[in-house]
C-alpha cells in the first residue's frame, strides 16, 4: 500500500533521506517526464537523454543521501537544473551540431491516456507534439532557454531572471515571444491547432 501519494516533494525527500525508498520512487515518477523532456530538448536523442536522466537522478541521490540537499528551492527546479547542466555539458563535449531526430512516435505517449480518442485524432496529436518539439529547437536560444526553464523545469520567472542575469521583464518578454513564435510557426507549417482536439 502506498501512503505517500499526496505528500509534498519536501516530505518525500525527508522520508527518502530517512531510508524510505518508496518515497524516492514517488519523487522520480512525479518528475521524470519533465526532467527527461528538459534533457531531450537539448540532446535530441532518446538514448542519450535516458542516460543523462539516470546521471541526473544519481547525482540527486548522492546529494540527498549525503545530507547536502538544500531545501530552500523547489526539488523540480533543482533536479531540472542538474539535468540541464548535464545535457549542456554533454552537448559541448560531443561538439555536435544541433540535429533534429525524426521520431517514430511509438513511445511518445506511453504513459498518457487517450483512450477516448479515435486512432486518427491520436495520430494527429502525436504528429503535432512531435512537430512542436522540432519547432522548439528552431526558436532563438534565449527564448528556448526561458521556455524550457519555465515550462518544463518549473522555475519561476524571477528564478529564471536570476539564473540568466536579466530582468524579470526580459524573461517574461522572451517567454512571450517564444510562445508567439511557436504559434506562428505552427500555423505557417499547417500543423494542427484545433482547440477541439485538446479540450479536456
Amino acid at each position: 500500500m502506498n501512503t505517500n501519494t499526496q505528500l509534498s516533494d519536501s516530505a518525500l525527500i525527508s522520508l527518502y533521506i530517512a531510508g524510505k525508498e518508496s518515497a524516492f520512487e514517488q519523487l522520480v515518477n512525479r518528475h521524470k517526464n519533465k526532467v527527461y523532456t528538459t534533457i531531450y530538448l537539448i540532446v535530441k536523442d532518446s538514448y542519450t537523454a535516458e542516460d543523462l536522466l539516470q546521471d541526473a537522478f544519481i547525482k540527486a541521490i548522492h546529494t540527498m543521501k549525503s545530507g547536502r540537499y538544500n531545501e530552500e528551492g523547489k526539488f523540480s527546479s533543482w533536479i531540472c537544473r542538474i539535468a540541464h547542466n548535464l545535457a549542456i555539458d554533454h552537448f559541448r563535449k560531443e561538439k555536435r551540431s544541433p540535429m533534429i531526430t525524426l521520431e517514430d512516435g511509438s513511445n511518445v505517449f506511453n504513459n498518457m491516456s487517450f483512450s477516448e480518442d479515435s486512432a486518427e485524432s491520436l495520430q494527429i496529436k502525436e504528429d503535432t507534439h512531435a512537430r512542436l518539439r522540432e519547432l522548439i529547437q528552431t526558436l532563438p536560444q534565449t527564448q528556448r532557454e526561458v521556455l524550457m526553464m519555465r515550462h518544463y523545469a518549473e522555475m519561476s520567472f524571477q528564478e529564471i531572471a536570476d539564473a540568466t542575469g536579466v530582468s524579470i521583464n526580459t524573461a517574461l518578454g522572451r517567454m512571450r515571444y517564444a510562445l508567439i513564435n511557436l504559434r506562428k510557426k505552427m500555423l505557417n507549417n499547417n500543423i494542427a491547432y484545433d482547440k477541439n482536439l485538446y479540450s479536456e
Binding site: N33, Y36, T37, Y40, L53, V108, N111, T128
Partner: peptide, 9 residues
C-alpha cells in the same frame, strides 16, 4: 500543447 509535447523515458 507544450504539456502534451513532454516525453516520457
Amino acid at each position: 500543447l507544450l504539456d502534451g509535447a513532454a516525453k516520457a523515458p
